[in-house]
């Protein structure tokens, strides 16, 4: 029983600077790899991982820090990608305007869905986002005249070299993590975590829970749209497959594996899942079987995830030292 109770607790310092520092060090370590001769193929794997890391970080802001469950991170990424693709195809709008527009459209849709569903307590957000994601995908598939269905829309590339995309995504993930760390250090970060831990209690203490839940969902949707729009200009083709529920499943497994409610978890999870996906795909497309099983096992037995578990081990050691210290002072006081 004691084990179960402790597994429910979050690691003590979820926004610790250490985690941000480790994440930035990891990104810094990835940065020089193209110049050191990382193959184009593996550069692509890292770029995809970083794109997923953006989605996973945004999903983590909701699930890990605010306790909201959206099933549309991939849906919003697809929406963001289609906004920039449609603007380019039908109005000739440059991607420099198209990409931010994608983010803004997603944020507005997120705001509307958030206002509709987050006033209510219950599973309404998950139900509505699931319906939204699938229905957006079907609209994109069926509106052949506008979106060319499964074939997809072509969009222009931003750079001529793949390594430029590589640096762009490293910078994007770095900025996102720094921004999230900054946000969570503000009072707003405390409100979000208060909502996650005990929504009724937070409301009783005067936190405007609905406002902050809608706020978190809106920015998370916006950034998912941004990630999708950026990724669209890397893959150069925008098709409904960007928004498939399997993508949402992968995002979820990255966060659960890495650690919900930890700053570093989604990045670690995204790299682990994507790199191992390469091998599982080569072995015969087992990734969508293996990762759901890992997710179920982690959700059952290790809900704090890899990073959370390691953080707990460090915290426990620190706790032991603190206890030893206090005993020393007790001994000193009694003597």
């Amino acid at each position: 029983m004691a084990a179960r109770v402790s597994s429910l607790r979050r690691p003590a310092a979820p926004t610790s600077r250490t985690q941000l520092a480790i994440a930035l060090l990891m990104l810094a370590a990835l940065a020089p790899l193209p110049t050191l001769g990382l193959e184009i193929y593996w550069q692509g794997v890292v770029i995809t991982s970083l794109y997923y890391a953006m989605l996973a970080t945004n999903w983590n802001l909701l699930a890990g820090y605010t306790g909201l469950f959206s099933l549309a991170p991939a849906g919003f990424a697809m929406l963001g990608a289609y906004v920039t693709a449609l603007l380019w195809t039908y109005a000739g709008v440059s991607p420099l305007i198209g990409i931010p527009s994608g983010a803004i459209v997603c944020a507005v849709v997120g705001l509307i869905i958030g206002i509709l569903t987050l006033r209510l307590s219950g599973p309404y957000l998950a139900l509505t986002t699931l319906a939204l994601a699938e229905i957006l995908r079907v609209i994109a598939l069926n509106s052949f005249d506008i979106t060319r269905g499964e074939i997809g829309l072509e969009v222009p590339a931003l750079f001529s070299h793949q390594s430029s995309y590589y640096y762009m995504f490293i910078v994007a993930v770095g900025c996102l993590l720094i921004g999230l760390h900054w946000l969570l250090g503000k009072p707003c970060g405390l409100y979000l975590r208060a909502i996650r831990n005990d929504e009724t209690g937070a409301r009783a203490r005067g936190v405007r829970t609905v406002f902050w839940k809608v706020f978190a969902f809106t920015i998370s949707s916006g950034f998912c749209g941004l990630a999708g729009a950026l990724f669209a200009h890397y893959v150069i083709i925008v098709s409904p497959s960007i928004g498939h529920l399997l993508v949402t499943g992968l995002v979820m497994s990255m966060v659960v594996l890495g650690g919900m409610g930890t700053l570093l978890g989604p990045l670690v999870g995204a790299l682990l899942v994507n790199v191992s996906s390469e091998y599982l795909r080569a072995a015969g497309d087992y990734q969508h079987i293996v990762f759901p099983i890992i997710v179920i096992v982690f959700a059952r037995f290790c809900r704090e995830g890899l990073v959370g578990r390691i953080a707990m081990m460090f915290n426990a050691r620190a706790g032991v030292n603190a206890a030893r210290g206090s005993r020393t002072t007790e001994v000193l006081a009694s003597s």
Binding site: L8, A63, G67, F69, L71, P123, A126, R196, N197, D198, E199, L245, L246, T248, G249, M252, S253, V256, M260, H288, I289, F291, P292, I293, V295, I296, A299, R300, R303
Partner: peptide
């Protein structure tokens, strides 16, 4: 703890859905 229950249920049933489709 309602939060932990919802979290577990959503994650596990959604992962199960993907697992069954893939299998």
């Amino acid at each position: 703890r309602q939060q932990g229950r919802d979290e577990y249920a959503i994650i596990v049933t959604f992962a199960l859905s993907i697992l069954l489709i893939a299998a």
